[in-house]
Simulated assay, not measured.
Amino acid sequence: MKIIDKENFIFPNISDYKKDYLKLETTLPEGVVLEKITKKNNEIILDYLYTKEFKGVGEKFTTLAEESYNSGIIFYIPRNIKIDKPIKIEFNMDEENPVAINQNIIVVEEGSEGTIIMDYTTSEKVKAFHNGLTKIYAKENSIINIIKIQRMNDISHNFDSNIAFVKGQGQVNWISIELGSGISSSNYSNFLEDEASEANLYSIYLGDGNREIDLEYSMIHKGPRSISNIETKGVLMDHSKKEFKGNLDFKKGARLSKGIEEEYVILLDPTVKSNSIPALLCHEDDVEGEHAASAGQINENKLFYLMSRGLEEREAKKLIVEASFRPIIDKIPFEDYRKIVIDEVERRLMNGKN
């Protein structure tokens, strides 16, 4: 089942993105670089500007982001620096700024730590287009946390490619929240390059109306004792469609590594379409890989119990869905963004488009 025809997708006209999207709320330690990416500051990131052999959601999409970006950030943390407060990036597309093509380059040196929140929204009536490319370089013993919240309107298009290179005992933690956009395609590829490198990806998605969702998550184990985890919770309702591909790839040399991937999707209506393709590739003997995917309707006993306590059917379903999502939402370390996500989930569940 092919959800989105990306090969024949026609890009809109590209214009400048003029809104202020970098929200800096704290003084950064000396040596930290945080600035908007421009053609003039490429010397800072020359070694990281182009990524070979990474197609993301599609080669023409990553090429567009690398060569024609109109927004994005450079974030560089020197050795042994911990940034406690999150860096907030907020892209709001409106009539005057309907196109956001961002390239984000994040380099975290040895022993350092930081957190970034990226929030993608649209004004009510604009047919917006977002194409993003985020590159993470996590060096030895570093930790970088990336939280992405996509809640664009139903007539917009979203394409988002993400890649991480993780060195020895480094750690990359992703939280992906996919709640909007009529067409949405996301790719996360993590290369665990050295011993005890680690990547974790926690995600939720919600399909309502006629939304089309295409997700591909990959963990490529190259170093020994590397660790990966993919945990995905989804809900489909109305006439939405989704394809999920989860890949665990153990390369030669990744001995004693461990990877786990699981996806669970709740199907609220018989008119939805869901396709899940978990894959396990192994070129090394002494590894441990687990993968699972399941889809089903809401447990009738739970639904009956809640309705017997006076809840209407839609309200009861909302509570069950929120309970499924909550363990991942609670991993967002900031209350205001947790509330944003919960409110958006509730709004879409209660305003179903049957």
Rank of each mutant, 00 (worst) to 15 (best):
I83P: 00
E263H: 09
I175W: 08
K127D: 04
T232Y: 11
I332W: 01
I155P: 03
K82I: 12
T27H: 09
P86G: 10
F244L: 14
I260S: 07
M219W: 07
A138N: 11
K302F: 01
H130M: 10
N301H: 05
K331G: 06
E53C: 07
E66G: 10
S186E: 14
G168H: 13
T27I: 15
L206Q: 13
I298G: 01
K55S: 15
E67F: 03
S276K: 01
K222G: 08
F129E: 01
E263Q: 15
H291W: 08
D330Q: 15
S276L: 08
K273D: 14
D286C: 03
A316R: 00
F244I: 08
F334P: 03
M307Q: 02
I163F: 07
V272C: 06
P12A: 06
E67H: 11
S276Q: 14
E313H: 03
S123A: 10
I230G: 15
G132A: 13
K85D: 11
I81D: 05
N210C: 09
T115I: 14
I342A: 02
K318D: 08
H130Q: 15
G289Q: 07
I143P: 11
L34W: 11
S226E: 08
S181V: 07
P98N: 05
S226D: 01
I213W: 06
K318V: 09
V99G: 02
Y188Q: 12
I328K: 04
K242E: 13
D286N: 13
K339L: 06
D194C: 01
D194R: 08
E95H: 11
M1R: 09
S274C: 15
V321H: 01
E124D: 02
P78C: 08
G310T: 10
Y21E: 10
G111A: 04
E124H: 07
K241D: 10
S176Y: 07
L236A: 13
K251Q: 13
I177D: 07
D47F: 04
